[in-house]
Simulated assay, not measured.
Amino acid sequence: MLKRIETYYDAVPRSSARAEEFGPLTLFVQEGQGWPYYARPALGHEGEVGVGAVEAVRARQRELGVPEAFEWVAETTPGLRAAVEASGLTAHEHPLMVLEGDGVAVPEPDGVAVRMVGADDPALATAVAAPFAAFGAAPQPGTAERIAERIDAGLTRLAAALEGGRALSAGQHQPVGAVSEVVGVGTVPAARRRGLGLAVTAALVADARAGGVELVFLTASDADVARLYGRLGFRTVATALIAEPEEA
């Protein structure tokens, strides 16, 4: 299962990024505008990763003006944490969760319609913006258009909880063959504690299963959020690590 997830992690950025190889590490670089990617272990690499390789990638990230970020699975590449921390980065642990069965349906919240959002849907712009608003941010210009292109290409599936035609919560799953990851689920602050994020996640799970996805997974931000996803049938199978410079 973790090998399938590793293969997915290597494949999914390649639809919009180029890959630069640094021995045991691969740096994904966004082509054009869009959310910047990260570096991760090269697919199939099973040996140790030295500090020198990490520092070479960080130098390239600084040259490109992108975040000095690394993402990987602790159980798959156990030695990478020591190397990134020796280079001065801080690693953060997050539960990596896999769906068991078809998922658990949740009641639709009162007064809210939870559904998939298409590329030409009038709710697309607010569905794209809602997860950004959840973290006090706004999408870059052109983000909705890029998401629409990905929906048309079958690379992204978008679900939202709508009230009066406006998205209060939204999220995506990104299918690659029979594997998909649920990502970017967020609820605008004023609509929290109504179960909207859980309902959106359930809709994404149902859509993935209906589309023939066999392995659905996600990364929870922390143990409390992992317990919520557990209500939908997800269980923790490993630890996802994200390393970046410590905030000043």
Rank of each mutant, 00 (worst) to 15 (best):
A74N: 03
E63T: 13
F70I: 07
L89Y: 12
H92G: 13
G88E: 13
V73C: 03
L80M: 14
A86V: 04
V51P: 07
G50D: 14
V51H: 01
E68T: 14
G50Y: 08
V49M: 08
R58M: 15
R40T: 10
S87L: 12
E75W: 15
R81P: 06
E68G: 07
T90H: 12
V51R: 13
L89M: 03
G88K: 08
L96I: 10
R81L: 04
V54N: 12
A69G: 05
T77S: 10
S87R: 06
Q61D: 06
A82H: 11
V66A: 05
L89I: 04
Q61N: 03
G65P: 02
L64C: 05
V84K: 09
S87N: 10
L43Y: 00
E68R: 06
G79F: 02
A91W: 12
T77G: 00
H94G: 04
H45W: 13
A83P: 08
A42I: 00
S87V: 08
E48F: 05
V54I: 12
E75D: 12
P95A: 03
E71T: 14
E71A: 15
V73F: 06
L64F: 11
L96H: 05
E85K: 02
G44M: 12
A59Y: 03
R58C: 15
A69Q: 11
V49W: 01
L89E: 04
L64Q: 09
E85Y: 09
V73R: 10
A86I: 11
R60L: 03
A53D: 15
G65D: 10
E85N: 11
A86T: 09
L64H: 03
G47C: 05
H94P: 10
L80T: 08
E85G: 03
E48K: 11
R58Q: 15
P41R: 08
V54E: 04
Q61F: 12
E46T: 10
L64V: 06
V66N: 01
L64P: 04
A56T: 09
A91T: 09
A42M: 01
P95Q: 07
H94W: 01
R62W: 06
A69F: 06
G44I: 03
G52C: 03
G65Q: 09
G44C: 06
S87Y: 01
E63Q: 13
R40K: 12
A56F: 01
F70S: 07
P41K: 14
G65T: 02
E48Q: 10
P41T: 11
A83T: 02
A59Q: 14
T77E: 02
L80F: 04
A42K: 03
V73K: 01
T76F: 11
L43D: 00
R40C: 11
A69S: 15
E46M: 02
V51M: 10
L64W: 04
P78V: 08
P41S: 04
S87E: 04
E46F: 00
P78H: 03
A83F: 08
E63P: 01
L43T: 03
L89Q: 07
E63G: 01
G44P: 01
R62E: 11
V73P: 00
F70L: 10
G65K: 02
P95V: 00
A74L: 15
A82F: 14
R40I: 01
R81S: 11
G50S: 11
L64R: 09
V57W: 11
G88C: 12
